[in-house]
Design a binder for these strands. Sequence first.
RNA 1: CGGGGUAUGGUGUAAUGGCAACACGCUUGCUUUGGGAGCAUGUAUUCUCGGUUCGAGUCCGGGUACCCCGACCA
Length: 413
Amino acid sequence: MKQSKFFTKTRKEKIKDEASLNADLLMRAGFVNKEMAGVYSFLPMGLKVLRKIENIIREEMTETMGAHEVLMPALHPLKNYEATGRDKIDVLFYTKLNSGGDLVLGQSHEEIVTPLLKNFVSSYKDLPCGVFQVQTKFRNELRSKSGILRGREFLMKDLYSFHATQECFEEYYEKSKVAYHNIFRKLGIGDITFISFASGGTFSKYSHEFQTISEIGEDEIYFCSDCKVAINKEIIDDSPECPECGKKKADLEVKRSIEVGNIFPLSTRFSDSFNLTYKDENGEEKPVYMGCYGIGVSRVMGTIVEIFADEKGIVWPKEIAPFHVHLISFNKNEETEKIYKELLDVGVDVLYDDRDKSPGEKMAESDLIGIPYRMIVSEKTLENKTVEVKKRNEDDVKFINISEITDYVKKII
RNA sequence: CGGGGUAUGGUGUAAUGGCAACACGCUUGCUUUGGGAGCAUGUAUUCUCGGUUCGAGUCCGGGUACCCCGACCA
């Protein structure tokens, strides 16, 4: 991709009235645009990052969880919420059909997926079953905050599982923990993201969250550094010790964290509301056990910006970076163009800054955008038939012979 | 939803109640090319409704939007 073809631009001034680091950097670098409080457009590079995060999640959902991807609607009939008693929860956006029906915008999809599965599940032979989607959620937050970490409209992966027995559910639930750990590891935040015991809210006695340690997080957790598990502050008084080793509350580390994922046992809470049942081997009708499993895709993106950014800008982990390499020409476009094509030919996702701008501006902008590898072609490097290579998160530079570039990039991507 | 703050060209800021200014950006031209270049040129601004006043960006009231703290948060 040539930067001269971009319709977005970077800004060097801090965004006015924006204390949130992720919002400031993502807007200045041209990844997102704020339309109103808590509502963002994702611009080409922002969308690329979002898609890469999605794909890492999708792969685990499909392969580890054996789940099937669907896309459910954002418009939901209010009567489904009346059936579950959730028609008055305060994050709901209400709207109406012109013909008179009452609707809400989807904030989660239990009220859709449960009746949906009712059309297909009737026998124990139809179970277990997992369906997931990556979809926009709407929550009428009284106050959105922290940039894309807490919006009124955001992208979420939600998986729902259906089982004949509690035991079958539990097995799947345990598998989801493995899948989630895999996902956060692949996203580059595995070593600071921990499973955390939390309340089950209105659904059940307990649930689990995946909390990424960060000072800007809204949550407070009691962390056991031996077992790498935590307890959310909201339930610490009910269970004041590490569930793994029994270490007491006073010996646990209190940390702030961002909830990037959560998993809930739903038991028969929703299958009861919609009468989702199956017939067992004896022809007896029984309720379906359910679980739900969420990951905030856009929130993960914001979290990664917060965690890795430095004073110059964003630092993307290579797994989700919008491009592998940022190729920059210091007014040596003919020579750089050849290198650009060569990189494209071997499958490198490269952003090429071919614009007529000063070196300082190009480098400052490159740091702001945060692509993992920067390659500079200048008069200086061409004298020695090299390009200068620098990693975004390291200070030292090295010079690679132009003839060896292809081999070099194959190793790094 | 309670509390606090802010609103001026595209962006960031300035302006005792008295001619709305500066920088960046953008246009055009020339120069420049290793850390957001230089000269010249053109361009564009007081959130909204009302009030006070000879006169309001500035004071007062309503509204709206945005930011922050808290509450809330399947």
